[in-house]
């Protein structure tokens, strides 16, 4: 425990060198706020067609932690999540301002390729969205488009095992993915994201369309995944955040004087602190169910 925080030394970090997932598991031994900073967001904001949806988010996300983003509808937590892998680029009217540093490199810098960003920062969506292809082809999609064709079978098996789905599907890899149950589909989507060996997994309300048993399976999975990955999850469900997250960020909505609504980050702290003794009264009102 006396080792200083590592991996900020000689080797340049950022998008170019391959940050092998799980290569420095020692960081999980450190207290959360001393673990390596994966995302360092400074005054991050988003406008859609000129209307501000999110402003001034200052937030660090640390390696090998599960960070939950909670808050009422319209608070910008999904918008924020989509900044982290440049998914907002897909909306032509979206403009991101402020800085979002990923391993000290600005994700929105001029040399950064959004394709490369999304390869390193995987995403799982609210509704399971397997492709209408076989289970195998779903997991193989990412490796194939990225040209990782060596040892594809092994890569797929490994991804399915990590997503705790292998035993259920190993005998029917060539069957259609849409024949799986909702919970299996979502684990398939997680396996699909893991197959390209990302550094970070972003999850946008991954359990909102699932039954409680499937939800429990995915939550167990998140806890397992943090030993190798950094996980950021948006959730509506405060119990879920309390169960799975190490850190919790509470977002809320500020009402402007002209009636405009804009998402803001109210507070980020360890999950235990957010749910027991938050420092901001708005957080307290929300987590105790008296929403403010």
């Amino acid at each position: 425990m006396d080792a200083p925080p590592t991996t900020t030394g000689t080797q340049p970090r950022g998008l170019q060198p391959e940050t092998m997932a799980g290569a420095s598991n020692e960081s999980i031994e450190l207290p959360m706020d001393q673990r390596e900073v994966v995302f360092d967001c400074r005054e991050l904001g988003v406008r859609y067609a000129g209307v501000r949806a999110l402003r001034d988010v200052d937030l660090n996300i640390h390696r090998n932690t599960v960070t939950a983003l909670i808050g009422p509808s319209g608070c910008g937590k999904s918008t924020f999540l989509r900044c982290l892998n440049r998914m907002n680029d897909l909306i032509p009217s979206a403009v991101v301002d402020g800085a979002c540093l990923y391993h000290d490199e600005d994700l929105y810098g001029p040399q950064i390729d959004a394709i490369e960003v999304r390869k390193r920062i995987g995403m799982v969506f609210q509704k399971p969205n397997p492709f209408p292809k076989s289970i195998y082809d779903n997991v193989a999609f990412g490796p194939r488009v990225l040209g990782m064709k060596d040892g594809l079978d092994d890569r797929i098996e490994q991804a399915l095992r990590r997503a705790a789905l292998w035993d259920e599907v190993k005998d029917r890899l060539r069957q259609g993915a849409l024949g799986l149950s909702g919970g299996q589909q979502q684990r398939l989507c997680i396996a699909r994201a893991l197959a390209v060996e990302p550094d970070v997994i972003l999850m946008d309300e991954p359990c909102s369309a699932l039954d409680p048993i499937s939800t429990a399976a995915i939550e167990d999975l998140m806890t397992d995944l943090k030993s190798e990955y950094t996980v950021v999850i948006v959730t509506h469900n405060m119990q879920q955040a309390a169960r799975v997250a190490d850190m919790t960020a509470f977002f809320s909505v500020d009402q402007g004087e002209t009636g405009t609504r804009c998402g803001v980050l109210i507070e980020v702290d360890s999950t235990e602190k957010i749910f027991t003794k938050p420092s901001n009264e708005r957080t307290e009102a929300y987590v105790t169910g008296r929403f403010g």
Partner: peptide, 27 residues
Amino acid sequence: VPSSLREGSFGLGANRFQVSTRVVVPA
């Protein structure tokens, strides 16, 4: 074709041409 399929493939690092030809056209 649902946009969730496009997002899913963009999220895996596919470029627009790959999304079009490998996901949208087959679907």
